[in-house]
Write a protein that binds this DNA or RNA. Structure first.
Lengths: 196, 196
DNA sequence: GTATGGAGTGAGTGGTCAATCACTCTTTCT
DNA sequence: AGAAAGAGTGATTGACCACTCACTCCATAC
């Protein structure tokens, strides 16, 4: 469907960014914030264009259609998250699997503290997974993320699974605004995780 | 906004269901399945009406607007889930907190095995929480659910938190179709949880 | 200096959506 | 029999949406 775009991204990875490619990058960054609010279905391309400060028609020159744009945003967000986890993994002194996992969990908590749009986009992507291209992107996203966490930590299935379970708990808590509410149920859900 | 509807539901809880109320119940049951696919923003009222076998205009006689309809669907789904957890809680022999929690987790896994629309609606509700009425409904939903699980099991914060973390992990796994894929990453994410 | 190509836009187009309204048919009450 | 109330529908409306196209402006290349 959007092979021109994929190959384009792949081949231009190394060489200098042209002006249009730079624009694409800027659009991806601002589009994440726009899509974070109401997701793939609830966000119009006009809103995304307005958020990026370009016309809607030019948005359609940068991306072939809305689905491709959204998938690119999702991949950009997941790349950002992976980079932050990687940074934490190399920064930890110990090589103990549990220590690496804890460092990555802490890094994630800090990351989403001031970039909650990242996890919101990911949650919206989960919910739009019935759209074929988005569903495929989401599956490969999680596949890469799980394999990365496994290899970076060297931990077995159990702790890796718990790492993701707690991550999803954070995601839900942030996305429903539970972090802004102080009540017994939010204290239970967020006990020992509050880094925001 | 929709007080007439809330009070209506409250007052008619006890007495016999009129035909219109019966229709409302049927619509809620089928609407959950329709909303499960593409959520609040991605599902049209015409699709919901078609799924329920009524005209779109009559759907608007049964519910004042789309948002109220969706909130009613969400509350219906959460009620169903709570009922299944309650059933499991009374059925367990032991009164040990961990045993009750395990029984409820098993019941949840079995429930979503043949009613994945329930968790899909809940996830879509999370993502539509920026809509004021939906956000409020979702927060009270989770508040009730957490308090219910806490009181039914008698467990402290830690195990209750883990119960929900694993639940959200299941939700994400099902919603992205990870349960249909056999790969290292899905085996890690679903190790020891496969009841579907 | 003028041609070529890329950045960027305004003005649409056909279609869909939430919501409304006037209307019919059926049941029930008197 | 006839009024009143409720179940249910078809047609419509104005707003919005994804997507297109003809167009302008501005570099650089010759």
């Amino acid at each position: 469907m959007c092979e021109w775009f994929i190959t384009h991204m792949a081949t231009t990875q190394a060489r200098r960014l042209s002006t249009a490619d730079a624009r694409r990058g800027e659009v991806l960054a601002t589009a994440a914030r726009v899509f974070a609010a109401r997701g793939y279905y609830g966000t119009s391309t006009t809103e995304v264009a307005k958020g990026a400060g370009i016309s809607q028609s030019y948005l359609y020159r940068l991306f072939p259609d809305k689905e491709t744009l959204f998938v690119a945003v999702v991949e950009d967000c997941s790349r950002l998250i992976r980079e932050h986890l990687a940074e934490a993994a190399v920064g930890v002194g110990s090589a103990e699997p549990e220590a690496v996992l804890d460092a990555m969990a802490l890094a994630y908590a800090h990351l989403i503290a001031d970039r909650d749009d990242l996890l919101r986009v990911l949650m919206h992507a989960n919910c739009a997974a019935s759209e074929p291209a988005i569903g495929e992107a989401v599956q490969t996203l999680y596949a890469r993320l799980v394999e990365y966490v496994r290899s970076a930590s060297g931990a077995p299935d159990g702790p890796v699974q718990e790492f993701f379970a707690r991550g999803f708990l954070c995601n839900v808590a942030v996305s429903i605004g539970a972090t802004e509410v102080d009540a017994p149920w939010t204290r239970t859900l967020l006990a020992g995780i509050r880094h925001f």
